[in-house]
Amino acid sequence: MAAVDCRGRVADRTVFAALGWVAGTPLAISVTDRTLVIGTDPGGVFGMTSQGHLRLPAHVRHRCGLVSGDRVLLAAYPERSVLFVHPPAVLDRLLADCHAALLGGDRP
Rank of each mutant, 00 (worst) to 15 (best):
D106S: 09
G8F: 02
R55D: 00
S81V: 01
G24M: 10
A23V: 04
T32Y: 11
V60M: 14
T49Y: 05
A76P: 15
D33A: 15
D92R: 13
E79P: 00
R107G: 01
A28I: 00
G65Y: 00
F46W: 14
R55W: 04
P78I: 09
T32G: 03
A89W: 05
R55S: 03
G47E: 08
D70K: 04
H86N: 11
V37P: 03
V82W: 11
L94T: 05
W21M: 04
L73Y: 05
A96G: 01
V4I: 14
R80Q: 15
L83A: 04
E79W: 05
G105M: 04
G105F: 00
L27Q: 05
A11N: 03
T40D: 12
L91I: 15
A96R: 13
G105C: 03
T49M: 10
P57S: 14
H86I: 13
A23Y: 05
V22D: 08
H62N: 06
D12T: 03
A96M: 03
S50I: 04
D92Y: 07
H86G: 03
R13F: 01
G47Y: 02
G65D: 02
V67T: 11
P42T: 05
T35M: 13
R63H: 12
W21R: 01
Q51R: 13
L103G: 00
A23E: 14
R71C: 07
R55C: 08
P87H: 07
A101H: 10
R107M: 08
G43I: 00
A3Y: 03
P42W: 01
L91P: 06
C64P: 02
V67K: 07
D12G: 02
P42E: 09
S81F: 03
L74Q: 14
A58I: 09
L91C: 15
L95R: 10
H86L: 15
A101S: 11
R93N: 09
I38N: 12
R55E: 06
R13G: 09
C98F: 09
L56P: 01
T14K: 15
S30V: 11
T25R: 01
L36C: 13
M48A: 12
L94Q: 14
V45Y: 00
A18G: 05
V15N: 04
G43V: 05
L94N: 07
L91V: 15
